[in-house]
Amino acid sequence: MTEINNSNSNNIYTIDCEGDGLSKDLNRQVFPDGNHFDPDTRIWCITITNPNFKTYTSVCKIPGTRTLPNGWTTKAYHLPTTKVPNRIWACGEFHNVIEFINYYDFLWNIHNILELLPNVHFKGFGDHDYDKELLQVNFKKYNIDTIPLEKMVNINPTRWTKTEEQVHTSDYLPNQDYLNYGIKHNIEDTIQLMRYMKGIV
């Protein structure tokens, strides 16, 4: 965490959350209103990137699938045998990854990090604050205060270079590859947003 907070550039940080929800197209069918938000989405990977492109990535594996209001079942999960790597190669270098076994500890850790940062920017879903809302509902379920989330700022990039393809368990990848690709995608999205914020892309 010290690498994240010891930035000597400027006070811009970016964040991205990966959840266990359905693909966007399917989610629109189950939750047709607003940002098609699944309020029971479980976050499993979060990355925060600082202005010097140093990342902090934490992971809490998805123990199983969920049943949605219309009877559909989510497809994202991680097998007990699937290992969270200590680091992932993304954007031309290795990035450290920290695993949490307990979901409350995973959320509380992010809460504590966000408390230390002046502001955190996320890539919005249009005008909808998806990542912020996702953290809010998860914090509230575990009685974690949401005050640090007030610093989160929705950014809608006018240009975006495609990052690692987001994959789903239905893509028939081995579960280990599904987890690794998800972490890589998560890291690359925060770095890409930081590059946008700094006018590099």
Rank of each mutant, 00 (worst) to 15 (best):
D177H: 02
N154E: 10
R28P: 00
I191V: 06
I147Y: 13
P39A: 11
E115T: 10
F106E: 10
F139K: 00
N180P: 03
N70A: 12
P63E: 06
F37L: 01
L114H: 06
N35D: 05
L68R: 09
V153L: 03
E99I: 09
K24A: 06
T65L: 12
P51Q: 04
L107T: 06
N186V: 07
D131F: 02
T65H: 14
C17A: 06
T82A: 12
I110A: 15
D129H: 13
G21E: 09
N112M: 12
N186Q: 10
T73P: 15
S170Y: 15
I46D: 04
L117H: 08
D38I: 10
K61N: 11
T47N: 08
K141F: 05
D145L: 04
V30F: 12
D171P: 02
K83F: 00
R66E: 09
E188F: 08
I183G: 03
D127L: 12
Q176A: 01
M197R: 03
I4M: 11
I98T: 11
N109S: 14
N27I: 01
D131G: 09
Y178A: 01
P157S: 11
F31L: 02
I88A: 11
L68W: 14
H121V: 13
T163R: 05
L134H: 10
N10P: 09
D189T: 10
P39E: 10
F31V: 01
T169N: 14
L79C: 09
D177I: 07
N109F: 13
S23N: 11
L149W: 07
D189R: 03
E150L: 13
D40Q: 11
D177Q: 02
G199W: 14
I183V: 03
G34L: 10
E150Y: 02
P51H: 05
I15Q: 02
K54L: 08
N112Y: 14
E133S: 11
V59K: 04
I88F: 01
L179D: 05
H128F: 15
L134A: 03
G92F: 06
G124R: 07
M1I: 13
T65F: 11
K184V: 04
C60F: 02
G21I: 06
Y56W: 03
D177K: 08
M194T: 03
N175H: 04
M194L: 09
F37C: 00
K132V: 08
T161M: 12
L193Q: 01
H128S: 06
D177N: 01
H121C: 15
D38F: 15
Y103H: 13
F37E: 00
Q166A: 12
Q192K: 06
I62Y: 02
N175L: 03
D20A: 04
R28T: 12
L193Y: 03
D127P: 00
Y181W: 04
T65K: 15
P32M: 10
H95Q: 07
G92L: 10
F122D: 07
K75F: 15
G71M: 09
T146C: 14
R195A: 08
